[in-house]
Design a protein around this nucleic acid. Sequence first.
DNA 1: CACGCTATAGACTATATGTCAATAGGCGGA
DNA 2: TCCGCCTATTGACATATAGTCTATAGCGTG
Lengths: 115, 115
Amino acid sequence: MSFLQPCLLVMLHQTKAHGYALLNGLEEFGFSPELLDPSLVYRALRDMEEAGLVVSEWGAVSQGPQRRVYSTTPAGEKHLEEWVADLRHTHQEIDYLIAAYERVGSTEDGGGDSG
Amino acid sequence: MSFLQPCLLVMLHQTKAHGYALLNGLEEFGFSPELLDPSLVYRALRDMEEAGLVVSEWGAVSQGPQRRVYSTTPAGEKHLEEWVADLRHTHQEIDYLIAAYERVGSTEDGGGDSG
DNA sequence: CACGCTATAGACTATATGTCAATAGGCGGA
DNA sequence: TCCGCCTATTGACATATAGTCTATAGCGTG
């Protein structure tokens, strides 16, 4: 899991948007837009729609091709809440893992970087 | 990714051990021993051995079936260092995601724990 | 009208995870 | 002795998640 779905859902939690806009927004979350294939984003959105977390509608045409505009559902908001709780848990597990890595017990290897 | 490999590698970073012992040790890292299938652990160890991160040897028999005892290689230690750095990064991304979730801008939803 | 940008979708492949069964030695109890 | 349980490890199979590549389509530019 690379946080793609939760990131998208958080963005949609803030405001409704279409896939291409979300694609650009993902840069803020640590995804490099050059490495991130657009189809991953679109698929993630479709998967979330299938799961009932978001709904979509065709946006009013302005110029260029039509946009599918997504927004969260109540179920999606609920799910996001749990997702965030889960991520807090993951956050703690990472803390524990890093602490365990640095703990390493012994007198050996006096170093221990502080950075 | 559910941190299985990095957790095992951190444990082996602390001390050499065989699979079954590591299996029990994983509880500390947030894995519930009732839900965690042992074969996942053994497979993770084999995968890491194939990748050159750990090596194994048959432990001296004491009682019961033979134990395959794992320990880290220099390459494994190097890899773990990078893994930890990566997890620090993930740690920050989770921070960002949670912050973005709570930010949500508006006057709406007064709550928001100050966690 | 060919080309590139915005915008979305689908097929196919690869990797990661999860589930289930097999093997095997030693120990306690019927 | 034989059965069932615990320790200990392995392998086959199925499912889930993620990555790559290609197709489609409207619109503006040269």
